[in-house]
Every structure is written in structure tokens, then in C-alpha cells.
């Protein structure tokens, strides 16, 4: 019964995307579309296939993901370090409050022009911008997670006379792991948005620039193909991280009863 219902639901879910695709293709064929802004789904698929075959699509993907990943790692590590420090040392957190609250709302892309002046148009600007965007989720979530660590566990670590580093490694990090995973998921989304933005404005490589180039060359099929490809990457990354999250949470749950 439920199997039938879910199959019907799946069919319903496909109605809109498939229907849209068919309507778009039919409309393009009937009107003999020759546009600088739109393209038939078949033309988009063709352009995508050509870009994949000549390797340009994958080269651009590697550039974008490379920069996004580098920035993500730097940002998350810095954010975690600051978040754990602020979470453990309340006075430090309180003293830095005004400074952090003043810098945090700055939209990451707004610092692109500053970075262009400092480090020019290029990879460093992209990585720095991504890192700036990824610091905040890691900082905020790890700070509140550290504060939420079971006080009994902190007392245990005191009683065992663990060194501060051992305390972080053995008690704090494992307890806040689920929150770190959430922070990374949020950050990955930001990293991709920001990386593509920088490529459109300040670092002429990668998928962001590929889209701009196609748009300016009045090649809507290629532009839309890259857009769909980017959407696919976003979707795949999200799915991957959900899987990772399930694993980490699963591992945490399995380990929970053991001492």
C-alpha cells in the first residue's frame, strides 16, 4: 500500500521537471527558437556534451572546486579554532563580542574589491573570500556547541587532570562533532556560492567565468548547460555531506554508550 503510494508520489514529483522540459523543447521547436537568452533543452544537452568532451567543463570544475575547497578548509579551521577558544574562555568571548558582531555581518563578497587591491585578480582573492565566508558558521556553531558540552564531562577531564590540549582532543572535539558537521554543510553551500561569485567578478577562471563568458558570447545553450552542471555539483555535494553527516552521527550514536 505504502509502496504504491510512494511510487505514485514519485511519478507526481517527476511531472513538473519532465513536463517543463517537454514544453520547453516543444516551444523551442515550434517557434524555431533562435535566441540570445534561451535555448532548447536538446541544444543545452548538446552544448554540455561538447564542453564535457573537449575537457573545458572539467578543467573549469576542477578550478572552482579546488578554490572552494581550499577556502573552505582554511575558513572552517580558523572558525573552529576561534569558536572553541571563545567557547572555553568566556572572558575572551565577551571581550571580542563587539569586534566579532561588527565584522560578522559584512557580506563576504563585499571584501572582494579590497582583496583585488591587495592581491589582484586571481586564486588568492578567491580562496580568501571563500575562507572569510566559511569562518562564521564554524565559529558560531562550535562556540555554542562547546558551551553546551555536558559540564559533567568537563569536570571529569578536570578530575583526570587532562592537559588543555588533551581536554580539547578527547572531550570537546568528540562532543561537538555533530555541530561541526552541520557547520561544514552550511559552509559548503556558502563556499560554492562565493567561489562562483568571485570567478564572475575577480578571478576569470572556473565555472563562474565560464558562465559569464558564454553569456557574453551570446551562447545561451552553453550558459544554461554550465548552470545545470553547477546545480548538479551543488546537489551532489549536498547529498555527499548528508551521507557523511549520517555516518558521523551514526558513529557518535554507536560510541555513545561506551566509556
Amino acid at each position: 500500500m505504502s509502496g504504491l503510494a510512494s511510487r505514485a508520489d514519485r511519478a507526481r514529483g517527476l511531472c513538473l521537471p519532465l513536463g517543463g522540459l517537454l514544453v520547453a523543447e516543444a516551444a523551442a521547436r515550434i517557434s524555431g527558437l533562435d535566441s540570445t537568452t534561451l535555448a532548447a533543452p536538446s541544444a543545452i544537452a548538446g552544448a554540455g556534451a561538447r564542453a564535457a568532451l573537449d575537457g573545458s567543463l572539467f578543467a573549469a570544475t576542477a578550478q572552482t572546486l579546488g578554490a572552494a575547497f581550499a577556502g573552505l578548509v582554511i575558513g572552517v579551521v580558523l572558525g573552529l579554532a576561534a569558536g572553541i577558544a571563545f567557547g572555553l574562555v568566556r572572558p575572551l568571548d565577551r571581550l571580542m563580542e563587539v569586534t566579532v558582531e561588527l565584522i560578522r555581518p559584512v557580506p563576504p563578497v563585499a571584501i572582494i574589491p579590497i582583496l583585488i587591491i591587495v592581491s589582484g585578480l586571481g586564486f588568492r582573492t578567491e580562496v580568501t573570500t571563500v575562507a572569510f565566508a566559511c569562518i562564521w558558521p564554524a565559529l558560531i556553531l562550535s562556540r555554542s556547541a562547546v558551551r553546551g558540552v555536558e559540564p559533567r564531562l568537563i569536570e571529569v577531564s578536570r578530575a583526570l587532570r587532562l592537559s588543555p590540549l588533551a581536554r580539547i582532543g578527547k572531550i570537546i572535539m568528540p562532543s561537538i562533532l555533530p555541530n561541526i558537521v552541520v557547520a561544514v554543510r552550511l559552509s559548503v553551500g556558502f563556499a560554492l556560492i562565493v567561489a562562483i561569485t568571485v570567478e564572475m567578478t575577480a578571478n576569470p577562471v572556473g565555472l563562474g567565468y565560464a558562465m559569464i563568458e558564454a553569456q557574453q558570447a551570446l551562447d545561451p545553450a552553453l550558459m544554461l548547460a554550465v548552470l545545470l552542471w553547477i546545480g548538479g555539483i551543488g546537489w551532489a555535494l549536498n547529498a555527499l555531506l548528508l551521507l557523511l553527516a549520517a555516518r558521523v552521527m551514526g558513529a557518535a550514536a554507536r560510541q555513545a554508550p561506551s566509556p
Binding site: 514529483g13 513538473l16 521537471p17 560554492l192 556560492i193 562562483i196 563562474g208 553569456q215 544554461l224 548552470l227
Partner: peptide, 19 residues
């Protein structure tokens, strides 16, 4: 609606700018 939205959601918003 949900499957279509799930497809659109991970699309980085800035990528829609050229379009």
C-alpha cells in the same frame, strides 16, 4: 512540488546571475 524544489535548491544563487 518538492522534488523540483529539491533539484533547484542546491543551485548556488550566484550562478543564476548570468542567466
Amino acid at each position: 512540488l518538492k522534488p523540483t524544489l529539491e533539484l533547484l535548491r542546491p543551485l548556488p544563487a550566484s550562478a543564476t546571475i548570468p542567466v
